[in-house]
């Protein structure tokens, strides 16, 4: 157990009007110090739920950790009280959310929202907090810092707001930064700027990053390790080289094929995996992916595949040997 973070058999339930739904099941992965782990998967596969579970923010949104442990520096976050968590959140572990436009409080200034966390965790004077806040704004590439400190969120663009969110997340030099699709709401140029920024910051601070994305291209650029999720479960994980060179799950293979290529004829239709992700209340019997899988056999319809481990990589597929051998057909 050398990980900074070890998530073991994590399951999350949501209480809804129509009963309990299992949003994620039996999720296990590890993040080592200084490592960047990407969690990829389609919309609704449980990426955000996983990150909220690690932050223990689920309780505020009718969710609960029904099983498993979240070991951070050998301590189980799943067993901590919210009071204890408030010393860890924003301090040792930080998160950047998916929606920069609404993630900042509209009635407080940028400066105040930045300084608040610093003052809470580090018990420094207001002057010191202010100095640190300005440093952070500089670090994330914001100009006119003196003015920005006194501006309100609505006076900033989406990209600027996400930079402020990153500054807030970095405020107390976290060991682990969770970035939940930090760029999906932003346009492409800003996206690459933000990703470059995250990469630079990682190099400077040696923190670990969990980057959530549904873009395999992004994962390829910045990940050390990739965790692929589908309908609430991990279907495959391994190093970025292993996954890109030799994907062993049909879903991973499909995701890789759907990365837009710079080269080649532009008229060629972009590959996309047929079908859609099932709703959590109507999961198919057997393997969750089988209705969309061209490798599906009788066994896949009946039995759910376990996560098989080999060479530091894991895959949940009955037919992974076939998958390795055969090219995915172009549809």
């Amino acid at each position: 157990m050398t990980g900074l973070l070890n998530v073991n058999n994590l399951s999350v339930d949501f209480k809804t009007d129509s009963g309990k739904i299992k949003a994620i099941e039996d999720v296990s992965f590890q993040v080592k110090p200084g490592e960047t782990v990407c969690i990829v998967g389609e919309s609704g596969s449980g990426k955000s739920v996983t990150s909220l579970a690690i932050m223990r923010l689920l309780e505020f949104e009718n969710g609960e950790i029904s099983n498993g442990e979240i070991l951070f520096k050998e301590e189980d976050l799943a067993r901590k009280t919210q009071d204890e968590m408030s010393n860890i959140r924003g301090n040792d572990i930080s998160i950047i959310f998916q929606e920069p436009m609404t993630a900042l409080n509209p009635v407080f200034t940028i400066g105040r929202q930045l300084m608040e966390g610093i003052q809470h965790h580090q018990k420094v004077s207001k002057q010191d907090a202010e100095k640190k806040a300005k440093e952070l704004l500089g670090l994330v590439g914001i100009n006119d810092i003196e003015d920005r400190m006194y501006q309100y969120p609505h006076e900033l663009s989406g990209g600027m707001r996400q930079r402020v969110m990153i500054a807030i997340a970095l405020a107390c030099d976290p060991k682990l930064l969770i970035a939940d699709e930090p760029t999906t709401a932003l346009d492409v140029t800003i996206e690459s700027q933000i990703l470059t920024l995250l990469n630079e910051l990682k190099e400077k601070t040696n923190m670990s990053i969990i980057l959530i994305t549904h873009d395999m291209g992004v994962a390829a650029e910045i990940a050390d390790k990739i965790v692929v999720m589908y309908a609430g479960k991990i279907v495959e994980q391994g190093s970025v080289y292993q996954l890109f060179d030799e994907p062993t799950h049909p879903y991973t293979k499909g995701l890789l094929k759907s990365i837009p290529q710079d080269k080649g004829p532009r008229l060629k239709r972009l590959y996309s995996i047929q079908g859609t992700i099932p709703s959590l209340t109507q999961l198919p019997k057997g393997c969750r992916f089988h209705p969309r899988c061209e490798f599906a056999t009788e066994k896949c319809l009946q039995e759910e595949p376990p996560l098989l481990k080999a060479n530091e990589r894991e895959v949940a597929c009955w037919n992974y040997e076939d998958v390795i051998k055969k090219e995915v057909k172009q549809t």
């Binding site: 505020f60 919210q82 968590m85 959140r89 924003g90 900042l104 966390g117 405020a171």
Partner: peptide, 17 residues
């Protein structure tokens, strides 16, 4: 139920704040 409330919790602020 708004996002910025989740942000303020993510910063580690106490529920009272």
């Amino acid at each position: 139920s708004q996002n910025f409330i989740r942000t303020s919790r993510a910063k580690g602020l106490k529920e009272r704040v």
